[in-house]
Structure formats: structure tokens, C-alpha cells
Amino acid sequence: MKKILVIDDAATVRMYYRQVLEAEGFAVEEAGNGYEGLEKALTEAFDLYIVDINMPKMDGYTLLRTIRQEPTICATPAIMISTEGQIQDANAAYAAGANLYFNKPVRPESLITTARLLTGEHRA
């Protein structure tokens, strides 16, 4: 079973991604800010990170930059999902190390398709 770490400070957002992804057979863990996300990522192996931008203690960009420098986890794919809809936000996300960028709210179908693609979980 592929494991996904959802990192977002909004509890309802985490619960939503969890519900959508668990229904598709993914295992989901949660972290409430970037720093907690980094701790979990360093403690446990995941197949995908889903990362918000604006969070207390550590924002999503800083988190992704840190992950991309950590030898044990730097190759794990990451989707960044945020409320900030400008072109430069997507560019900043890619520069920080995101594999994909979405605006909120993300459609459940898009989340599922990209999660499958990025984790290599190809199912019918």
C-alpha cells in the first residue's frame, strides 16, 4: 500500500484529503505544519508528500527545500497545493522542489490521478 503524508495546518483539509485518498487504497498520515511534516518525513518512509504553502513554524517552500537536501528523502515526490493562485506561486513551488502544483480547492479526481501517477500506483 502506498503511503502519503499530508502536511497542512487546516484540520478539515487534512481530513478531506485523507477521506479521498483512503477510499482509493492509499494509507494517509497527517502533519499540522511544515516542521512537524519534516519530523514525520525523517522518521517514516512515504511515497508522496502533499504540502500546503502557508503554515506556522515552517512554510511549505522551506519544507520542500529542506526535504530536497535530505539524502534519505530527497527523491520522494511532492505535490504543492495552495490558495495562492498567481503564476509566480507555481514557479516558486517548482523552484522549491515540488513535482506538481495545484490551486485550492483541488478536485478529488485530480488529486487521485496525480497521486497514482506520482506514486507509480497504476490501476485501472
Binding site: 516542521y35 512537524e36 519534516l38 519530523e39
Partner: peptide
């Protein structure tokens, strides 16, 4: 306890 609730 975790620094993730305290400080960056």
C-alpha cells in the same frame, strides 16, 4: 514534546 509546536 516537539520543536514543531515551539519554534523554527
Amino acid at each position: 514534546e516537539s520543536m514543531s509546536r515551539i519554534t523554527p
